[in-house]
């Protein structure tokens, strides 16, 4: 099935805004900055998955390390057919399969629970190492926020993957420069980020994180790299697509009211990119 990637990005943005509004809480900023990354992965012929058979053994794995952006993942999984789109309306509600932070036991297509930042890359490494040990060929993708690179565990994992030559790992940094309390730069700057990864032994690919075709290309480039893991540093804008959310840390974890939702949806629908 040929999917119009840009169209899908618009749909996912609408889903994110609508579901967070319906839930009354959630994290729009980081969800919106990750949209193109997630769409490229699931709809750009990058990841091998089977929505009808979520536990298919040969599937590629996706680990969401920045668990608070569950809405973008839920939307993509629903649009991919892992569960009915109607379920998106139950986000964060009692008994929902869509927990506020992702829980493996609840959601089809979800590989691992997340919500405590900084842990995803270790998990991705472990899965990738298992694939190496078992001689299977799947790839493992891990989406991290930039703020969570302040967690030391990320750098423990960053040291481990090159040591084990885990070329089946592709990490992605959603480099949107904003965390809950403010900008990453004013809290704990990550300047020189590509060099940091490079000096830890990674193949570093910088990419415009809102250019979905460039992302697809970058993922394919990463898959061609042998003997070391790759990291995509995706330059993004927090709250991308909604003017009043863009770059504003107050929209890290805030819910749009009806009026704001209407404006946001209008902007997203009208977007040409």
């Amino acid at each position: 099935m040929e999917v119009n990637l840009k169209e899908m990005c618009r749909t996912v943005r609408e889903d994110i805004l609508t579901m967070i509004h319906a839930a009354g809480s959630g994290h729009p900023g980081g969800s919106l900055s990750s949209v193109e990354i997630m769409v490229a992965l699931y709809f750009g012929d990058v990841m091998k998955v089977d929505a009808k058979n979520p536990d298919w053994n040969d599937r590629d794995r996706f680990i969401l390390s920045k668990g608070h952006v569950a809405p973008v993942l839920y939307s993509v999984l629903a649009r991919k057919g892992f569960f009915p789109v109607e379920e998106l309306g139950t986000l964060r509600k009692f008994g929902s399969i869509l927990q506020g932070h992702p829980h493996k036991a609840h959601t089809p297509g979800l590989e691992c629970s997340a919500g405590s930042l900084g842990q995803g890359l270790s998990v991705a490494n472990g899965i990738a190492l298992a694939f190496k040990k078992l001689g299977t060929g799947q790839r493992v993708y891990c989406l991290m926020g930039d703020g969570e690179l302040q967690e030391g565990q990320i750098w423990e994992a960053a040291m481990f993957a090159p040591q084990q030559k885990l070329d089946n790992v592709c990490a992605i940094v959603d480099y949107n420069h904003v965390q809950l309390d403010g900008t990453v730069e004013e809290i704990k700057s990550l300047d020189n980020l590509p060099a940091r990864w490079n000096d830890f032994g990674w193949n570093v690919i910088e990419v415009d994180g809102h250019d979905v075709n460039a992302l697809v290309h970058a993922f394919k480039l990463a898959a061609l790299t042998k003997d070391r893991p790759s990291v995509l540093i995706a330059h993004t804008v927090k709250g991308k697509g909604v003017s009043f959310m863009e770059g504003d840390c107050n929209w890290h974890g805030n819910c749009p009211n009806a009026e704001q939702l209407a404006q946001a949806l209008a902007e997203v629908r009208g977007a040409t990119s």
């Binding site: 794995r61 680990i63 590989e111 691992c112 900084g118 842990q119 995803g120 890359l121 270790s122 998990v123 991705a124 490494n125 472990g126 899965i127 990738a128 190492l129 298992a130 694939f131 040990k133 078992l134 493992v140 030391g152 565990q153 423990e156 994992a157 040291m159 481990f160 084990q164």
Partner: peptide
Amino acid sequence: PDNFIDMGIAEQDLAGTAAGLALGGMLP
């Protein structure tokens, strides 16, 4: 030796990687 990994002095990564190994079908 193929069934052993030294994670270095990195206990959090040790726990996380073990989780991944379990998800990948091994018994860590």
